[in-house]
Each structure stands twice: as C-alpha cells, then as structure tokens.
Design a protein around this nucleic acid. Sequence first.
DNA 1: CGATGCCCCTGAGAGC
DNA 2: TGCTCTCAGGGGCATC
Length: 310
Amino acid sequence: MPELPEVETVARGLRPHLEGAQLSRVIIRRPDLRRPFPPGFVESLEGRLVSQVGRRAKYLVAECDDGTALLMHLGMSGRFTVHEKGNAAMPGVFFHGPNGRGQAEDADLATENGHQGEPVAFSGAGPHDHVIFETGRGTRIVYTDHRRFGLMDLGRMAALQEHPLLAGLGIEPLGPDLTPGFLERALGGKRAPLKAALLDQRIIAGLGNIYVCEALYRARLSPTREAGTLSRADSKRLVTAVRTVLKEAIAAGGSSLRDYAQADGAMGYFQHRFQVYGREGDLCPKRRCGPVERIVQSNRSTFFCPVCQK
DNA sequence: CGATGCCCCTGAGAGC
DNA sequence: TGCTCTCAGGGGCATC
C-alpha cells in the first residue's frame, strides 16, 4: 500500500494522537511480522512519552522522550486505526490505498476491505490487528497488516541514520537533494530500466510502483529506457514530475484527513486519480495517443503510454 | 558489483 | 456455489 505520500499522511494523522502521549501499554498480538520484534520491544516502549512522529522514506519514526526511536514499516498492507475510548470505536487514521485497478471511484475505494464505514469494535481486535498501542489519553492505536509484510524495530534517535534499516537508503525525493544533477550522477552508466532504477531505494528512497509509473508518464519517459541514457532535459522533467506527483498525492491525503476530522464518524480514506496506474486500455489521458499499456518489469506491473513516453 | 527472479503472506476478484 | 488462478502499493536474498 504505502509509498511515501501514504506514509507521510499516516505520520500526519498519527501526530495528534501520539505526540505528547504516553504509551501506557503495548500489546503484540502476533509476533511474526516480516521480521521478529526486537527483544525488549514492549518493555522499552511502555511508559515512554512520544515526543515526535516523523518519516524517513517509507518508514514511520516515533521518537520517545528517552531517545528511543520506534521504526515502523507498513509493508504492503499495513495500516493504523485510532480508536477513542468510550466511542464504539472510530478510526482516526486510516490509510486506504487505491484498489489496484485504478478506477479510483470513491465508492470503489471504500469497499476494499471490511473496515469501511463500520466501526472496529474497541475490544474485539481483528485477526490481523497485530500491535496495539494504548495511550495515557485512553486511545488505542491499532496496527493492522493482513499480509504481514510490515515490521517494527527499535533504535536510538541519536544514531538514526546508522540504523541498519535506514543506513542504505537514498535521498528523500521531496528534499533538496533531488536535482537533475543528482539524477545524472546517480543513474549515469546504469543499464537497468529506468523504472527499476527509480524503485531502487538506495538511490531515491520512498518511491514505489504507483508513483514511479505516474511520474514517468508525466515526464514522458519510457519505463523501459536504460536509466543511464537520460539527457539533461529528461532529468529536469523527471525531477519536476516526481516532486509534483508526490506533493499532489500528499495534498490529497491531507485533504481526506481533514474531511474526516470535521466529520461525524465518516471514514477518511485517500482518493487518488491516477493517469496511467491501473488504467490499462484507457486512452492516454493527456495526449490521447492511444491505449495505456501494461507490461511486467521486475515482476511488477508497469503502466505507461508507449507513444508519448520515450 | 549489477541485474534479475523468487519469496515472504493473505485476500480479492476473475474465470471456469 | 465453489474451486483455481492471478494479482496486489515492499523489499530482502540468492543467483548468475
């Protein structure tokens, strides 16, 4: 599910519930996520005050008052819901991704799983609710991950960059480092397909399958092209496209959270409209070249317009 | 070292 | 209805 914009939105959604709150109780209901929890996970966190919630690449980072860093990766299907005590339960942060077919109609998105609309019972944890954080404010923050590709780990904020999970990560695409010059240096000489290079978290950290497809479409660059063949003009367009796509996606996530905040129990979820992702067979939306094609690269679907993406 | 393929796991939807 | 097959937003590891 979650690429950078989704993780960023989850971080923003968790902030008001976690920052300044004490983790009064931490419950691991299922210890076998992608990797085992580190020893002392529960003991290290219980009683701690969360001072800050941030993001690095696709990792959520919760900083505790004693300098402990809680790292969380959502994998493919991880999500957080916030349950207020006293209410039957209300999801407060709810990541909901595209349905993978790209129709992106709101009604379709809302039906992807059983959470929508119906409150999750406060006491009745579901079979895929793997971790529960109870706060001193009486809220429950529940991590749900049916595929269990997500993971959690601990580290020290002071040495965050050296944490094994983060040490090899590349630059933040929304930060100042992503420039045409950087792309030329980082991709120069690479013979891998452009799409594979952009998915490589060691170069740029945070892009995933959807937003790479979307960025390449906007930049009119073919996903199959050798990464090392970008011209200066290509790199410029790509930098702009990556930033624009990510920012627009974050903005959309934020607005859906605001919608939720002013409501009434209505579910907050993302509503994204993709230009090419999941739109195989649709007419190239910007330039009407012809149908969007789907190919498989690195065992993942790539959607693109073979006419205008060169 | 770089590139590719496989695998982790579960569920949804399509097709028969 | 119910089975089987394919696919899914990530990423680590083995292999060539």
